[in-house]
Design a protein around this nucleic acid. Structure first.
Length: 206
DNA sequence: CTATAGATAATCT
DNA sequence: GATTATCTATAGG
């Protein structure tokens, strides 16, 4: 289709000398570190894409994490190789997408909570049934719906097929705070938001 | 802007 | 049987 975009879509790219030679090394970071690095990164699935503005970290020792009680049918991707997607069904209705990270088998992932859309907006509006830009990808369920993400992408390697990630050229101003929608592990400040972004979900941090 | 109820089904106890 | 990494609609300030 579009040659330029296709090239972009078939790789994980770095856009800064500050980052490791191979950007895939970032997937080896512990979840809280990767979650911070993902703020400002471009994420693309198929014809849709934009800039990540909100993430959350989950680790094996974290009671709020799906991996806390060990491997299961649902969370097997979290215990697989880093740099792949972990997709799960939320509240029986929505899909949510994570980036698996850390040492292989360590059960860590970063939840992608919100994105500022800039590519394939008409397609996102179509999938969401909403035209308001701010509401297209503000929240993990909305992000997955807008980008057409479902269980078929669970375990999918980032940088293959039409899933692409480009890390930001320079560090972004990131605000941290309590994660959303959890009842355990609330003391861990593992929610990361691009400072001041209206595309992040409430409550605002600052 | 915040607060709340209800939907809905896989997963876990 | 209870919980859940959510969303929408609605009501009120």
């Amino acid at each position: 289709m579009l040659a330029g975009r296709q090239r972009l879509a078939n790789s994980v790219r770095r856009s800064s000398a500050l980052l490791p030679q191979d950007p895939r090394d970032l997937f080896l970071l512990p979840a809280p570190d990767l979650a911070r690095h993902l703020i400002g990164a471009r994420f693309e699935v198929g014809e849709t894409g934009g800039v990540l503005v909100e993430t959350e970290a989950y680790t094996r020792e974290d009671p709020a994490s799906h991996s806390f009680r060990g491997p299961s049918a649902r969370n097997r991707s979290m215990f697989g190789p880093p740099g792949r997607l972990y997709v799960y069904r939320s509240y029986g209705i929505h899909w949510c997408v994570n980036v698996v990270c850390g040492a292989p088998g360590s059960g860590q992932a970063v939840l992608l909570r919100a994105l500022q859309p800039d590519t394939g907006i008409p397609r996102m509006e179509e999938r969401r049934g909403v035209r308001r830009m701010l509401d297209l990808c503000r929240g993990p369920g909305r992000l997955a719906q807008a980008m057409g993400i479902d269980l078929s992408l669970d375990g999918h390697p980032i940088g293959e097929g039409d899933v692409a990630l480009v890390f930001p050229p320079t560090p972004r101003a990131v605000a941290t705070g309590q994660r959303i929608g959890i009842s355990k592990g609330v003391e861990r400040p593992w929610r990361f938001v691009l400072a001041g972004s209206p595309y992040a979900s409430p409550p605002r941090l600052g």
